[in-house]
Design a protein around this nucleic acid. Structure first.
Lengths: 280, 280
DNA sequence: CAGTGGTCTAGACCACCCC
DNA sequence: GGGTGGTCTAGACCACTGA
């Protein structure tokens, strides 16, 4: 990687590269230019999992302050191209994992399948005003909430809270599991069994960007503030809203896939953020 | 907003709030604590569009360096809660707009509808290796690319590149528009008309986080590096991949909605990033 | 222990906006 | 102009990792 004279505070202009001065140029920020250089470097000279030089060395090599270099690394980390590990170093990230999002993978109601979701616990409480509004019920009505995580290739990629109004499962008889234990995981399993007896006639989803708060971040094994893709799913049964799922997927490692399991592998094209692909 | 003694470099611990010292506490970073405080403030004391105090004042008020305060604002901006405008100030962002994503909104093939997409131009070129792979064709084959933007409520929320192999429309006769002009917009319109004659039997999508590069960012009226939701759509016709769409939506202002236009309004619940809702 | 990334400071100059 | 956010610097100390 090229070096730059230190203490050069001129904003980088495209004329620096082109000889002829086109005065139209925009003063590209240093960190953005660094990002491009580093991106080319990790694409060509490094491979997945490899450790790149440490921040102090890189900053010195490019003749910038460490903070500036970090701004470039921040971008590349947001794009899922780098992973930074405290005490270890900065690694070239693996391509994002394609994660199918559909009712089937929810393990509900089409049978449990290969256990993509792992229950953590199950709580029952009166609905907060906000939750009640989202579920279309009265505040205070009982809602069961299953908390679970999605594990792919040994890594936790998502957490989910599945909110089920008691009214949804009231008619379905409770299910006795082996022991009489009311332990979290069993409660969750029991609730899911009851849900499987419902006929779900549709679902609609919304996806947006969010950040993981403390608890969620811990489950995802990431620091707080980690960007996540928040998927909100409404499950309809008999024309009514039967349940609401709120899932948060790690944005750095996941590509969410929808629909009829495409014909060809979904390979992103060089728009915005180019990436290679892999399917879970 | 409360003030803090300046030059206090102790890491904020939860014991600061709780009297009894539970030694298990984690030293929460200042910027993360600031984020929480600011979040509460903008939720309770400010309303959409309102300008919050400038960064220098806020930093002084909280007794932190401006860079630290900015770290907190960065988070809130990523969550779509704040909008920063150079020369103006920092504003409380409007709730995210619900943007329907489906074939219908693509204006294809179900008729043009209310013009949610506006063509910019149309180019034809031999496919790059990467694009060819994504389209399942040979590199070098001709591909038509329509570039367009999606405008909602007077604001550009997305850009798209729709890649159509020439083979897809080869059988469909070209369509003459009014004049003989081969201007960009007309070319695009002509291609879209031809596409409408195809029977599309399915599509599959992928959503992931990306950042907008220079050109894209300009179209979205945002600085480079802006986080975007990248939607990759495969359109199938007669069992083959007929076209590939790559759309980038502004992550700060958009909530993507899928599926059978839900029963109730999709209202996010307080997980990860809580938000109010609005539909386009 | 030495080395890494994570946080934080106290300045500085810039580009942009509106008056 | 004066005020705003955007960029950048040159330090510092911390928490975590692994040998």
């Amino acid at each position: 990687m090229p070096a730059v004279a230190p203490h050069d505070r001129r904003p980088a202009r495209v004329e620096d590269t082109v000889g002829t001065a086109q005065l139209t140029a925009v003063p590209e920020p240093k960190y953005w230019h660094l990002r491009s250089v580093l991106l080319r470097a990790i694409d060509s000279e490094f491979s997945t999992g490899q450790v790149i030089p440490n921040e102090r060395d890189l900053a010195a090599r490019f003749g910038v302050a460490r903070a500036t270099l970090r701004q470039a690394l921040d971008q590349l980390e947001l794009e899922g191209r780098l992973v930074r590990r405290r005490g270890i170093g900065t690694l070239v990230a693996a391509p994002r994992v394609g994660v199918p999002v559909s009712r089937r993978e929810e393990g509900w109601p089409g049978g449990t399948r290969e256990q993509v979701w792992q229950n953590i616990d199950c709580t029952s409480a009166p609905a907060s005003e906000q939750l009640a509004k989202a579920l279309g019920i009265q505040a205070g009505e009982t809602v069961h909430t299953v908390r679970r995580v999605r594990v792919t290739q040994g890594q936790t990629v998502a957490t989910e809270s599945l909110h089920v109004p008691d009214a949804t499962v009231a008619q379905v008889p409770a299910i006795r599991l082996s022991g009489a234990a009311a332990e979290g995981d069993d409660q969750a399993r029991s609730l899911m069994r009851r849900l499987e007896r419902l006929t779900v006639d549709g679902e609609s989803r919304a996806v947006e960007l969010g950040v993981a708060e403390a608890e969620e971040a811990a489950l995802l094994q990431r620091p707080p503030g980690t960007p996540v893709l928040v998927v909100t799913t409404q499950y309809a049964s008999a024309g009514r809203l039967a349940a609401l799922g709120v899932s948060t997927y790690r944005a750095d490692t996941c590509r969410l896939t929808f629909g009829e399991t495409g014909l060809v592998e979904v390979t992103p094209v060089a728009a915005a953020t180019p990436t290679a692909t892999r399917t879970a």
